[in-house]
Design a protein around this nucleic acid. Structure first.
Length: 654
DNA sequence: ATATGTGTTGCAGCA
DNA sequence: GTGCTGCAACACATA
């Protein structure tokens, strides 16, 4: 818990409780800290932060979940105290909070300590603004089993890079705290009328522009169109309707958890590698991840409900599963990624400059900017945080770009990959092992495309997107950090059959309806299906996915490459990259001279001096950071889904 | 020091 | 269904 000096006043505290990604009332240590102040009044505030609205790059599905969480919080507040509701205010916290401090004569600002690099910079700035206003700040960790900073400290100040380190470090810290009870009462808010000018959202880019049916309208008025602090609608944000069937909010989260725990056998013997990515009705895992992301479920509540069940089960003399494969083990991995993120900060989510991420000469390498990458110190001196430029990448190979777009579209011609990608896009959730399959395929086990391209697509589509976990898992699967056995490669033909060919076939047919009538034995490799049988199934394996129908037949694309061949090329490439032993912070990586170490014919953008320089840092003005380096104009991230067809059409050659 | 075992979740072939 | 092996082979901790 961190505190700053309080206003010298004998009055009872007047508190803003600033909700962020802790959208719940059960086990909220920060909320408890606020209530422990015995405040005269408590203002539950949600800042409608332009950074989140414009730069978090969430699609309609994740927005739907967020809005449901906010609704649920507001309803719970009303339930506990009819005078309360969530005060949603449409402005960024850096400009808004100081105005609120004054308007409401606030003595304390309380919030849950945040974890990702942007939020930590923001909170450093907020802390300073509060100091200037004489407002005491109380922030308490609550997002993870252990405070990530404590975890790092217990790990010798180093990022937690494997589960053994997490287990050892956590033993030093002690037990996971028991969850805190839901508050029985919450004091009234004070006077909530606000007569303030709205600072307009800053001029930064709207990274979600292409996802909107019309531009965002949510900033029309500070406290909502009707002046009632209303939670914006999907329509105000301009997004198309969500397609996911998953739901957000604390009530849903607790009900889902209860359902899991009720099945004591499932809970006590859960082994992640045995659960099926091909199960979808119902899924084979708990599907609680989006609740953990939004904080509608406390990970410590989850942990102890599971652990108590496991302990009871064990007492009955029955065999239970253990970390890392057990349910509690999954939460430990989550803490591992938060620990890596806490130690590495902004650099964690990129290769360049990252001391713990291997350098591999991937296709479509990220271009990285130095803006906002430094420290909380720089951020703290700004009035508001300057938006980072939109991620961009070099198209070193038009072929790899097509592969990437077809991967994104779910038109690779590998049915298991396509089914997973389409499930991801529609539902915002796929099984963890499904994520493994498609991530391996895009990076080290197929396309040899930069893991950051994949991470960006997941960021847009996942309802449970969590920077630390997403980035960490992409590094894991691309064998750039956390994991290194790159010769263990997922096969789009074999992997989905592991849980039964029939179940795999059902899964594929559900999400790739073109294949709905194909005999199960061909479903993973439909090119093996004789043409006559394809026609009987009402479809043809033909083309590159840009055309959906030909005459009376539906079309499903041919595989976009020979998987066995690509697998060989990728493993060879990975072996070479491992031999070089470069990490993201190596000077040769930063200045582009890494090329000299790789043979010209190596996979990836390695060839010749005229070739694109991957892995280059630009500064704010777009100049090369290192003398003599030439930074080619990066291609802007390909427009939305619709424009991809053109890209694919151009490749008609094959 | 060099060898060995282990690491959440590979695949193919076989018993 | 389950569990072995050989495949080719990485990083790291421990003996």
């Amino acid at each position: 818990m961190t505190k700053t000096k309080q206003k010298s006043s004998g009055d009872k505290p007047r508190v803003i409780y600033w909700f962020r990604t802790d959208l719940r009332f059960h086990d909220s240590p920060a909320l408890k800290a606020a209530l422990d102040l015995k405040p005269e009044c408590l203002y539950p505030v949600w800042c409608w932060d332009p950074h989140y609205v414009y730069r978090a790059r969430g699609g309609p599905n994740r927005w739907k979940i967020l809005l449901e969480c906010l609704d649920d919080v507001s309803e719970s507040l009303k339930g506990i105290n009819p005078k309360q509701k969530l005060l949603l205010i449409r402005e960024g916290p850096i400009t808004l909070l100081p105005k609120l401090f004054k308007a409401w004569n606030i003595s304390h600002l309380v919030f849950e300590k945040d974890t990702d690099a942007y939020a930590r910079d923001r909170d450093t700035r907020v802390q300073e603004l509060a100091n200037n206003s004489g407002v005491e700040v109380i922030s308490v960790y609550g997002r993870t089993l252990f405070d990530p900073d404590e975890l790092v400290k217990a790990n010798g100040g180093k990022p937690t890079m494997n589960i053994t380190q997490v287990e050892r470090a956590s033993e030093k810290i002690g037990h996971v705290p028991r969850p805190i009870d839901r508050p029985k009462s919450i004091p009234d808010p004070g006077k909530i009328t606000l007569n303030l000018d709205q600072d307009p959202p800053n001029d930064g880019p709207d990274w979600s522009f292409e996802m909107r049916k019309h531009p965002d309208k949510s900033y029309s008025k500070l406290v909502g169109p009707k002046g009632d602090f209303a939670i914006p609608t999907m329509d105000e944000v301009g997004l198309l309707p969500a397609t996911t069937r998953h739901k957000g909010g604390e009530s849903v989260a607790l009900a889902s958890l209860a359902k899991v725990i009720k099945d004591t056998n499932y809970t006590a013997t859960f082994e992640k590698p045995k659960t099926a990515p091909t199960a979808f009705e119902p899924p084979d895992t708990t599907v609680l991840s989006h609740h953990l992301h939004f904080g509608s479920l406390s990970c410590r509540e989850f942990y102890w409900r599971v652990q108590d069940t496991v302990d009871r089960y064990k007492k009955q003399g029955k065999k239970t599963s253990q970390p890392p494969t057990s349910l509690t083990g999954q939460l430990l991995f989550r803490d591992m990624y938060f620990g890596a993120q806490a130690a590495l900060g902004h650099l964690f989510s990129q290769t360049i400059g990252n001391s713990h991420c291997r350098f591999v000469p991937w296709h479509l390498p990220a271009k990285v900017s130095t803006v906002n990458k430094d420290s909380a110190k720089d951020a703290a001196s700004a009035d508001r945080l300057s938006p980072a430029p939109e991620p961009a990448y070099d198209v070193d190979s038009t072929e790899a770009e097509q592969w990437f777009q077809r991967w994104r579209n779910g038109t690779t011609g590998f049915p298991f990959v396509d089914a997973l990608m389409r499930q991801l896009k529609t539902e915002g959730w796929i099984h963890h092992l499904g994520r493994h399959m498609v991530a391996c395929f895009l990076t080290r086990g197929g396309c040899y495309v930069d893991w950051q391209r994949g991470a960006e697509v997941f960021e847009e589509w996942l309802i449970d997107h969590e920077v630390a976990c997403n980035v960490g898992n992409w590094q894991w699967l691309s064998c750039t950090a956390f994991y290194s056995q790159f010769y263990r490669c997922y096969s789009p033909y074999a992997f989905g059959k592991k849980w039964g060919e029939a179940q795999g076939a059902r899964f594929i047919k559900r999400f790739v309806p073109e294949l709905a009538n194909m005999p199960d034995k061909y479903i993973f490799e439909p090119t093996k299906c004789p043409i006559s049988d394809q026609k009987k199934a009402g479809m043809l394996i033909k083309g590159d996915g840009s055309q959906e129908q030909e005459g009376e037949y539906k079309l499903y694309p041919k595989p976009m490459f020979d998987f066995a061949e690509r697998r060989e090329i990728c493993i060879r490439g990975m072996k070479k990259a491992y031999e070089m032993g470069l990490y993201g912070n190596n000077p040769k990586v930063l200045d582009g001279t890494w090329r000299e170490l790789f043979p010209d014919e190596a996979e990836g953008p390695t060839e010749g001096k005229g070739g694109p320089r991957g892995a280059m840092i630009e500064n704010n003005e777009g100049e090369g950071r290192f003398e003599g380096s030439v930074v080619p104009k990066g291609q802007k991230r390909g427009a939305g889904q619709g424009t991809l067809d053109g890209m694919v059409k151009r490749s008609k050659r094959n």
